[in-house]
Simulated assay, not measured.
Amino acid sequence: MEDAAARKERLRALRQAAEQAEGATGDAQAEPEKPVLRFRNYAVKDHKHIQHEQVQPAQPPKLEEPQVTKKPEEAAQEDLLVNVAPKKANWDLKRDVQAQLDKLERRTQRAIIEIMREQESQQSGANQA
């Protein structure tokens, strides 16, 4: 019980010290200032009771149109196509499919060799007969 009583006494002393320090700094700060309300999308109807500040709507920056020095007719047709089309449009497709293409290439080569051997055997069979 003595610990609780001592704690209450310390808290009371701290409160009194805080009140004295607050009073010493000035009585004008004792009353907190009310926040100023800023309305952008709300029109206040009761101006007497609500203190507010009207905020102007945001103004987007004005963009200038780019100045064209040459007409498209003056530039070569090939230059226009080069500027519009990407240089390597299918590089990512080739990268992703390259392993499958290699596999197909090997199978194609084997099939071509088999066909050539069959044709050779047919020709040699025709020559022998």
Rank of each mutant, 00 (worst) to 15 (best):
E22N: 07
E73Q: 13
L37E: 08
A76E: 10
R106I: 06
A18I: 12
V82P: 01
P66H: 14
L104I: 05
I112F: 07
T108S: 14
E74A: 04
M1S: 15
N41A: 03
A17F: 01
A89M: 04
E53C: 06
H49R: 11
Q122C: 03
R110G: 00
Q29Y: 12
E78H: 05
K94L: 05
G26I: 10
R38L: 03
N83E: 14
A111Q: 09
R110L: 02
N127Q: 06
A6E: 14
T25L: 13
L63N: 06
L80S: 03
A6D: 11
H52N: 01
R106A: 09
E31G: 00
R40C: 03
H47S: 11
A13E: 15
R117A: 08
V44Q: 05
A4W: 13
T25S: 11
V36E: 13
N41C: 01
Q119K: 13
Q128R: 13
A5E: 15
E118P: 00
R38Y: 08
Q122E: 14
R40L: 09
E74F: 01
E33P: 01
E120M: 08
K87I: 07
Q29L: 11
A43V: 11
S124M: 11
K71G: 08
R15P: 01
L37R: 10
P32A: 06
Q56P: 02
K103E: 15
Q122V: 07
A43C: 03
R95Q: 09
Q29I: 02
H47N: 08
P66T: 12
I113E: 14
E9W: 10
V36I: 13
R12F: 13
N41D: 11
W91R: 04
Q98V: 04
A99W: 07
A30L: 14
Y42C: 04
L101F: 12
P35V: 08
T25V: 12
R12A: 15
A17K: 07
G26L: 12
N41K: 01
N41Q: 02
